[in-house]
Design a protein around this nucleic acid. Sequence first.
DNA 1: TTCCAGGTGGCAT
DNA 2: ATGCCACATGGA
Length: 287
Amino acid sequence: MKYRSEYIREKKETIVYLGEKETDYNLDHIFDCGQCFRWEKESDGSYTGIAFSKIANFSIIDQNLIIKNSEEGDFEKIWYNYLDMSEDYGHIKETLITNDKTGIMEDAIKVGKGIRILRQDTWETLISFIISQNNNIPRIKKNIGDLCRTYGKPSGVYKERKFFEMPDAVDLAKLSEEEINPLKLGYRSKFLIDTAKNVKEEGNIRQDIGSYMGVGPKVESCIRLFGLHEMDSFPIDVWVKRVMNRLYGFNEKDVKGMGDFAKVTFGEYAGVAQQYLFYYVRVLEGK
DNA sequence: TTCCAGGTGGCAT
DNA sequence: ATGCCACATGGA
């Protein structure tokens, strides 16, 4: 553990001292950069959500990361890994800025300097990004929330609110398209059930993620980046096309050119670069 | 009304 | 291999 932490039993609270690394942490950047869909901002600026069956509330105050609703050991067992706290984002940012001679990445990092690539559950990421296709972020959040609330195991209650886990492949494989019609997932329902059936039958998630119904190149690269922590994976969606077109001068249709550029310029950290750019262009556009 | 959103599968070249 | 286009849904 690179960080000093303290657990306060009577408050069910963990305090993690970030020190000078605080600059590599920003909850808005982390939870609002489109990588996750199950965290909501509270009126006090903190974020509440669920991951790996644990409900938590995060805030950052005076160089401290505060984890509310935590049990003793949750930080070491769950959140240290989930928040990718072993990774040195200062080094990643320096590398990306040095390698991108245009200065665009430097500007993007100024805006989204506290982004981290969460180490999310692969199955949840697979389902989430099947739902994400040709969809917008608020509705993706609603769709996933509805799915978990309707078919997921209750995980607990925090501040009078119930939280539910992502239903597993066995549970989703039982469902029919007609049955989940009220969730209004649209044509994605079929992909979701088909994928669940395959994962159930095969007993694990395939290496060839793109062979699932509803998983094309973009969704696959999101699952690799967010669900398998392949940091060089560079998902190209409408927003990345936009930033590559408007700031880097690529033709909007030249997806191959964008991918090649990212691989050469951003290398092993292309996925992190993609998140800075995604967040940046959305801020520029007023989201 | 039309366009858009973290696109993809199916089909025709 | 590449180019269209239909596909559900809801907000702007």
